[in-house]
Amino acid sequence: MLQFLIRRLLAVIPVLFVVAVVVFLILRLTPGDPAAVIAGNSATLEDIANIRKSLGLDEPLLIQFGIWFKAILTGDLGHSFYYRLPVTELIGQRLEPTFMLALFTIVLAVMVSVPLGVLAAWRHGGWLDRGLMGFSVLGFSIPVFVLGYILIWIVSLKLNLLPVQGYKRIGEGFWPFVSHLILPAVTLAVIYIALIARVTRAAVSEALTEDYIRTARSKGLPEVRVLIKHALANAAVPIVTVIGIGIALLIGGVVVTETVYAIPGLGQLTVDAVLARDFPVVQGVILFFSVAYVLINLLVDLSYIVLDPRIRY
């Protein structure tokens, strides 16, 4: 067990290293002088010379990477010329809305998709099953921003039920906070629901063919108990796995959703930074999201030990 933990933790290192190399190389792909790119449009020659020196741009590429890598290991993601702030501080400021949106979305998606998937598997081939499969193809196809605008149009503009756009911090009152997050979370949850429901349905219907289900039924267990305690519990590993993998989808969707709903989170920061060609911020946000993604999936892997006692490494 301990050996597995250590091995799994060590496996994260090469992944994160490759991420760092890719993020480092992205800036070097830009035509022109990286120092000038980092310094921004309003920089003086002196600024550029300073950056050039601090990044070691006169040194070979490998040493440049070394300097940069050492900096990020100490938590220094560079400096945004556009916001005139350290990148880590910027990320800290913008984290809350993104985290809340992601949390709402995941909770909503799991609450909707898992019961639907179980029911679809239970009545395999029934109307709910076919409806859910049709919905999931649709959910994969409808672009997040199109759905977002349709929802704003119907719910906010026509029916006047919820605020159109924006974000309120939880300190500004509970209802304003929640009401501003409902539509973005629903928008973002649709593709996630499609994904999780599909996997839940497949995993549960596979579990339902097992002998222990027949045993459970024949000893007279109520069907709900059979479904939840026996079928769903045995289908937990693939479901949790897809929730973890789906985080990548969620992060991509966050960037778009925040733009549609004017939520001042990390996604909007990314877009603004790209438009301003503020590369340290772009690099920092990508690093942040990738590390978060890798760590969440590490947790998912470790959760197998709890979810499936048969797994003993």
């Binding site: 490759v18 890719v22 035509p31 991509g252 990314t270 772009v282």
Partner: peptide, 23 residues
């Protein structure tokens, strides 16, 4: 290992960064 690393970067973010770097 390289592919694992590439997969760890959310696709849309990588695409956005690449387009902005390449023009």
């Amino acid at each position: 290992r390289v592919m694992d690393g590439l997969m760890a970067i959310p696709g849309i973010l990588l695409a956005i960064a690449l387009v902005s770097a390449l023009g």
